[in-house]
Amino acid sequence: MKIIVCVKQVPDAKDVRLDPKTNTLAREGVQSIMNPYDQYALEEAVLLKEQLGGEVTVLSMGPPQAVDVLRQAISLGADHGVLVSDRAFAGADTWATSYTLAKAIHKIGDFDLILCGKQAIDGDTAQVGPGLAIQLDIPFVTCIQKVREASESELVLERMMDDGYDVVAVSLPVLLTVVKDLNIPRIPSLKGKMKAKKAEFKILSAEDIGADSACIGLAGSPTQVVSVFPPPPRGERAVLTGTVEEQIEQLVEKIAVYL
């Protein structure tokens, strides 16, 4: 089975702090990590490879330093890594991103299954996965929490819903987005780390993938950000005083409106 896993390099949220005085993001020492949801997608791809045979290619779009997440993916069991990187991609919204990834996948070649994290933790849109499936003209199922059965031709899956879950069957090729409950990602083996160290990655430009310049970056993006501003400040924290019992009494008064 040929599996492509889409991964994104994102800032680690534990390092992202809001400066309470200026209400701007303090970025000093912010590390970049593989988007957490993508780690579950990668793990599932490697599990399927181990079960059914085949190969796993990881694909990322981002600045040159995003090869770091590809290297990490190799250490976790991926076979190949491809980065699409070009200044011309800057400003891409989810439409332009899904177009660009689709073009890159056409360049990579055949596939049976594409796995993506449900969403990236920096943008939280959950739009690139479904958009990519549309661009590739294949079906998609989002928020997969369990792979019940897998064969070369068909998958039986559980997709998470707000009030429960649906069990669905789908023939390949298909694109899936996954949630956290799916598996527990492994830690890299020594052998994996060695392989990652030596790994080389294909870096594709806009020209390499044959992208139409009107469909990438800012020009290819139907949406535009017109302003960015801090969220409305939360009110001052009220101080509760006295014994714990007195504090609870005051609290009940304060929240009575909701009860």
Binding site: D124, Q127, G131, Q135, P222
Partner: peptide
């Protein structure tokens, strides 16, 4: 922006070439 809305609406917008803003 529910499990259903966040799943199929991105596909609809992408098919139409329409801009979509999440959440």
């Amino acid at each position: 922006a529910t499990a259903i809305g966040r799943s199929f609406i991105p596909g609809v917008a992408n098919s139409l070439g329409a801009g979509l803003t999440a959440d």
